[in-house]
Simulated scan of single mutants.
Amino acid sequence: MTTPPQYPSYSGGNYPGGNYQGGPQGPGPKPSAPGTVTAAFALYVLAALVSLVGVFLVFTDAGTRQIRDALRDTNTGNMSLDDLVRVTRTITVAVVVVFLALYLFFAFMMRAGRNWARIVLTVLSALSIASSFAGSVAATRSWATWVTLVFSILAIVLMYLAQSNQYFADSKAYRKGAVYR
């Protein structure tokens, strides 16, 4: 009968998963989101809700008039202006619902400490801010657009404050350490 091989004990050696002293150590406590990240998350959720309310404004009489005015000079081919308004509404709702679902997904990932989600939210917010000042969109701005803009700008600022930066760095270190354990 053979005896099992004896493996050396690693006391005090540094290895990719951390410092092994007589066996694997736990990853330590998971970093908790600071108030700045929590506030940015709340602002993104509120911005999504305001945008959802805003998209339903296209179904009001004022929204219909704005769409009609924006599309009046469009070459519609064989489509009537009423059909074009209906298609525009449908596409608007579909795009907004998909966009908001992704937006909320990224907000949840950002709150979980994923830096890539913070970057994606920053880019999406910047694009949204820039597009709201573009030609035809600027003509149809509503209160919902302004509220969403303010929330997005505040959320971007909050995500890059010192506490937030430390949280994202700590979350990354926690995940890296947890991979090897």
Rank of each mutant, 00 (worst) to 15 (best):
R111A: 14
L104W: 07
R114Q: 07
W116G: 10
T88L: 05
V120W: 03
V87M: 12
I119D: 13
W116E: 14
R89E: 10
R86Y: 10
L84N: 07
V97W: 00
R111N: 11
V95T: 11
R111C: 13
V98L: 14
L100K: 06
I91P: 05
I119E: 08
V93K: 02
A94Q: 04
V120N: 01
V96Y: 00
A107T: 07
T90F: 13
A107L: 09
V120L: 12
R89G: 08
A101W: 00
L102Y: 11
L84K: 06
F99V: 10
A94D: 07
M110L: 12
I119Q: 15
F99I: 04
T88K: 06
R114A: 09
R118V: 13
R89L: 04
V95K: 01
G113S: 11
L100C: 08
F106E: 06
N115C: 05
L104R: 01
N115M: 11
Y103G: 01
V120S: 09
V97I: 09
V85A: 04
R111T: 11
L102F: 15
R86I: 15
N115E: 08
V120Q: 03
A94H: 02
A94Y: 00
L84A: 11
L84F: 14
W116L: 14
V95Q: 10
V97Q: 00
A117M: 08
T90G: 15
N115F: 07
V96K: 02
I91F: 12
W116Q: 12
F105N: 02
V85D: 01
L100H: 02
F99K: 06
F105R: 02
R114S: 10
V98M: 13
R86P: 07
A101S: 08
R114T: 05
M109D: 12
V85N: 03
I119F: 04
A94R: 02
L84R: 08
L121T: 01
G113T: 08
R118Y: 02
M109P: 05
M110E: 08
L102T: 09
A117D: 07
V97F: 01
R86V: 14
A107D: 07
M109S: 12
T92H: 03
V96L: 12
R89M: 08
L84G: 07
W116M: 11
A94N: 02
R89C: 04
R111P: 10
M110Q: 09
F106P: 01
V97G: 03
V98I: 10
A101P: 01
M109A: 10
R118E: 09
I91H: 09
V98Y: 00
L104C: 08
F106R: 04
V85C: 02
T92L: 03
R118I: 08
T92W: 01
F108A: 15
L102D: 10
W116Y: 13
V95E: 09
V96D: 05
